[in-house]
Simulated assay, not measured.
Amino acid sequence: MVTRTACQALQRRFATAATCVPAAEVRCQRSAVFSREQARQRALYPRVEKIEVSVQGPGLDGTMLVMNKGMSTPLSCARHLTEHHVTNSALALVDGEPWSLHQPLTQSCSLTLLTFKDSDPTLVNQAYWRSCAALLGQVLETAFKDNFTVELLSTPEVAVTSGAFCCDVVLDPQLDAWTPSEESFRSLTREAQYLIHQDLVWEPLEVVPAVALEVFSQSRCKLEEVEQKAAQNPKGTVTLHRCDDHVLLSAGPLVARTGLCSQYEVTALHNLEQGPRGLHRRAQGLSLPLQLQSHHTVWRKLRQRAEKLVEVPRLEEVAPPSPPDSTPPASSQ
């Protein structure tokens, strides 16, 4: 585990080395570091060792699969079941913990494959909303010409009931006065739908902070976010995801692939406050998964709601939990 002091030292070193590099080159560098670390982790299992995976779910209880340690994933298990499980599964539970379909299994475990039509789809919905925000960040990062910089800030974790997923961003100062038109939103939406049509995988990778700092060496904001997320994780690690050549930090697992998105629309770009890196903006969008689609009249109402600014409390505005009161409650007379 990298200590907080070591993490800060690495952060300062990478921040000092950060220079203005073309966006395409930055994406290539991030993806290359991701691939290198992914290969290193896979090499930790040079010999094939078997693990037992107990599959839970309707009609599956009692199903036992013998899989390969450090190599097999929940998706590998789904392929031993039916085509329905392969195409409809969006997320997994491994020993009760939310787990990406593409995250290798490292020990014998219980496995439940989750879909959007489960009786309790809460975890899948949360992962889907997080994935839609990740897709929006990927679109924003590549939507502008190379002479306009785009800095993705930390992605707010918002509930599905908020009405829209969000991605905070700082655009080039030359764009501070820019107000996107409806055609601008349609263009961003088309870019997102292109990625959806490609049915790209969100590859997960759990890494130590030193690796994440190298991945995001060109982003001062992400360097700070790496340290924050590592400090919040009891294991001291952070989780990355890669979609094509776009690498992002994630607060939790994402759904398996972009093709699980169906109706998807970029709806708003709100100005927030002026920060040390420039004008903070909040991009927002709305989406429904492939398995759950709506009538156009319902979609129109949902879209109108998704245009309104989603308020996200600042960290310092969230009151810490009150200490337990040692005074016993007064008994009723």
Results as ranks from 00 to 15, higher is better:
Val33Asp: 04
Val33Glu: 09
Ser76Glu: 10
Asn88Ile: 00
Met64Ile: 14
Ala32Lys: 10
Asn68Cys: 06
His85Val: 00
Cys20Gln: 15
Ser72Arg: 02
Leu93Ala: 07
Gly96Leu: 03
Gly96Ser: 05
Ala24Thr: 14
Val66Trp: 08
Arg27Leu: 15
Glu49Ile: 00
Leu44Gln: 12
His85Ser: 03
Leu81Pro: 08
Ala78Gly: 03
Arg27Gln: 13
Met67Ala: 11
Cys77Lys: 04
Glu49Asp: 11
Arg36Thr: 13
Arg13Gly: 06
Phe14Glu: 14
Gly62Pro: 05
Glu49Tyr: 02
Ser31Tyr: 08
Ser31Asp: 09
Thr82Arg: 13
Gln38Trp: 10
Arg12Pro: 10
Ala15His: 11
His84Thr: 12
Arg27Trp: 07
Ser89Met: 03
His85Trp: 15
Cys28Thr: 14
Leu75Phe: 06
Met64Pro: 00
Met71Trp: 14
Gln29Gly: 11
Thr16Pro: 02
Cys28Pro: 00
Asn88Asp: 09
Ser54Asp: 12
Gln56Asn: 08
Met67Cys: 10
Arg40Val: 08
Ser89Tyr: 08
Ala90Gln: 07
Thr87Arg: 14
Thr82Glu: 10
Gly57Lys: 05
Cys20Ile: 14
Cys20Pro: 00
Pro46Cys: 04
Tyr45Asn: 07
Cys28Phe: 07
Gly96Glu: 05
Asp95Ser: 11
Val26Lys: 06
Glu37Pro: 01
Val33Gly: 04
Thr87Lys: 12
Cys77Asp: 01
Leu81Asn: 06
Pro74Gln: 01
Thr63Val: 12
Ser100Cys: 12
Ala15Ser: 15
His84Asn: 08
Val26Glu: 14
Lys69Asn: 01
Met64Arg: 15
Pro58Trp: 01
Val86Met: 04
Ala43Arg: 11
Glu83Arg: 12
His84Leu: 06
Thr19His: 14
Arg13Trp: 12
Leu93Tyr: 11
Ser31Leu: 12
Ala32Ile: 02
Leu44Glu: 13
Ala92Val: 08
Thr16Gly: 15
Glu83Leu: 10
Val53Trp: 03
Ser76Leu: 03
Pro98His: 06
Arg79Lys: 14
Glu25Met: 10
His80Ile: 00
Leu60Trp: 06
Leu81Trp: 08
Ala78Ser: 10
His85Asn: 11
Thr16Val: 12
Ser100Met: 09
Ser54Trp: 10
Thr82Asn: 02
Ala39Asn: 07
Arg30Pro: 08
Arg12Tyr: 13
His85Ile: 00
Val94Ser: 09
Gly62Lys: 02
Leu60Lys: 04
Ala90Trp: 05
Pro74Thr: 06
Gln41Leu: 12
Thr63Trp: 02
Arg12Trp: 13
Leu65Tyr: 03
Leu60Arg: 02
Leu60Val: 03
Phe34Thr: 06
His84Ala: 05
Glu25Ala: 12
His84Gly: 03
Gly62His: 02
Ala43Glu: 08
Asp61Tyr: 05
Gln56Glu: 13
Ala78Glu: 03
Ala17Cys: 09
Leu91Cys: 08
Glu49Ala: 03
Thr16Ala: 15
Gln29Trp: 11
Arg36Met: 09
Pro74His: 06
Ser54Val: 09
Glu52Asp: 09
His80Phe: 08
Ala17Tyr: 10
Ala23Glu: 13
Thr87Glu: 11
Arg30Tyr: 06
Arg40Met: 07
Asn88Arg: 14
Asn88Phe: 04
Thr87Val: 13
Thr87Pro: 00
Val94Asp: 05
